[in-house]
Design a protein around this nucleic acid. Sequence first.
DNA 1: TTGAAAGCGCTAACAG
DNA 2: CTGTTAGCGCTTTCAA
Lengths: 342, 342
Amino acid sequence: MFKSYTIKDIAKALNLSTSTVSRALNGSYEIGTETKKLVLDYAEKINYRPNPIALSLKDQRSRSIGVIVCEVANNYFSQAINGIESIAYNSGYHVIISQTHESAAREAANVQNLLSRHVDGLLISLSAETADTSQYRYLHEKGFPIVFFDRVATDIDTHRVTVDNFKGAFEATEELIHSGYKKIAIVTNNAHLQIRHERFNGFKAAMEKHGLPVPDHYVSLCAHGGMIIGEVEEALTQLMGLPDRPEAIFSTYDRLTTACVPVLKQLGYRIPDDVGLAGFTNSDVSGSFDPPLTVVRQPAFMMGQLATELLIKTIESKFPIHEYTSEQVGTELIVRRSSAKV
Amino acid sequence: MFKSYTIKDIAKALNLSTSTVSRALNGSYEIGTETKKLVLDYAEKINYRPNPIALSLKDQRSRSIGVIVCEVANNYFSQAINGIESIAYNSGYHVIISQTHESAAREAANVQNLLSRHVDGLLISLSAETADTSQYRYLHEKGFPIVFFDRVATDIDTHRVTVDNFKGAFEATEELIHSGYKKIAIVTNNAHLQIRHERFNGFKAAMEKHGLPVPDHYVSLCAHGGMIIGEVEEALTQLMGLPDRPEAIFSTYDRLTTACVPVLKQLGYRIPDDVGLAGFTNSDVSGSFDPPLTVVRQPAFMMGQLATELLIKTIESKFPIHEYTSEQVGTELIVRRSSAKV
DNA sequence: TTGAAAGCGCTAACAG
DNA sequence: CTGTTAGCGCTTTCAA
């Protein structure tokens, strides 16, 4: 069923040896111009395609890279995957995507799965649940090419691609402050991720700079980062039920930010009249929200490209690499009405 | 660099032949219980993983399926890919995604690329530009497993997974009519796609049923389906500039629908006060829009699953399949304020 | 119950 | 310039 032609078929048809055919196909110099033309023409005619599996077996590489993300159906990640694909494709790699759904166990299983498929390298964005990164350290120490992007493991010295989360959060928070908000709460996702810390710190730094307090009860955690709407409801109900109810909310994570909108409305609060809102999100329709959202946007596509370039460079390096780069790109603050003070 | 263990390593270490090791690993019956245990224990200890590439070479299949979509960063497709992955993963296939960016040329190139990678089958959603489906017919006739989903080629008799586009469009249009709109225009994407026709026909049928006309100048085309904002601007500017300006707009395509919102606003029209709006989209934040959007939603995840199941069944079928199923699933109409009549 | 050997498609070292 | 051959990791006859 759908057998394709092999080098052998060509050799037989042309009464040549397979090696001659191989040489012709690969543009070797030690071959007669006529023979070469003969082979190429015939190959063209029968639409010959080399079998990449045989090639992979030969040179011990699969020409594929594994990508680990929490969810494909996520603005940031789908845009990043777009960037990943664009580079990988041009470099002759294919991309195998696997999703953790924010589960550390699934993440571990996916890594094993990708390894058993002999991917040449791994592009990783940690799940929110991942606390233990030892499997990555192990691989990394064994010389297996790994690049982290966005949600990185800080305790492993590898290539990394991130945004300046601190600055992104700082700017957004300061925007809220400049609008006139003083009592600002933060909703954030799981504590393990580095990006959470950085964004949290950026938030705190902005508050501190302006002499504003960040009481503990103004810090609300949603472990599933907006995937579970009940969690967001609970968090916001609690925040908005406080005696010193916050005047504005800063959200550190994509879905969390967009999830805040319907939840706040459902709880009876108008944005920004009753409560201001700003947060990280890569949604490309955040400007059409009611109200239009003030957002921090990450250059997802570019980050995907950058990470993939680093990974492929590592994979194809003749020598083991021991110098790792941490690329940090900027975020974009888009100010809209949700952060205005009425 | 990162060499993994082979069956040979085990054989050497245990002083056995590779075939014995192979048999032990594969639970063959013609093997001594002791030897078997020995091998399995050792394999476990060194964390042995069979090389899928060698296996593929042997049995002439790659255990991978190719997916062709226009864009990963698209609500519908990212959700569908989610479904595709879930089934493929469990069946031991990996998924190679490639994007056409709505270009027929890129689509053709991607197909060739996937074929040269010897994928075992193809899951295809046509690009908006694709008019010529002969490459698919050719493959299909050669016995290559293909399943179309969402944007299908109707002139090829293969497995297909679609939604009831006619009904989805019919219901949404009728919803606008029931709200009190009479002059309803339609913005739609490229003419080649079957889904466009079906949705257009559903729209027309609803209009006819209620005795409403669909003049030609109420039909507006955006070839790039909302990817190019200028196109949407042009289309809407023209529609809204008509002497008999439409009172409502029905949009047949995901991004087109969401793109209508900022464009209409920018042109100075309020939704639904000045113009009603309803359309297809799988955006999961359409309820947070200003105004909340009346949308037709497709069960993308399920469609991805269905298509993948069909494909894998075809791939693994012992006999050539000549009976093809056309699965059609329902759409969901979510009525919100954008389609209300003020 | 085990081992030897061929073969999947391709490349490359070695002969000629 | 071209052919022969071994080998990548694995399974599967065929022999023993």
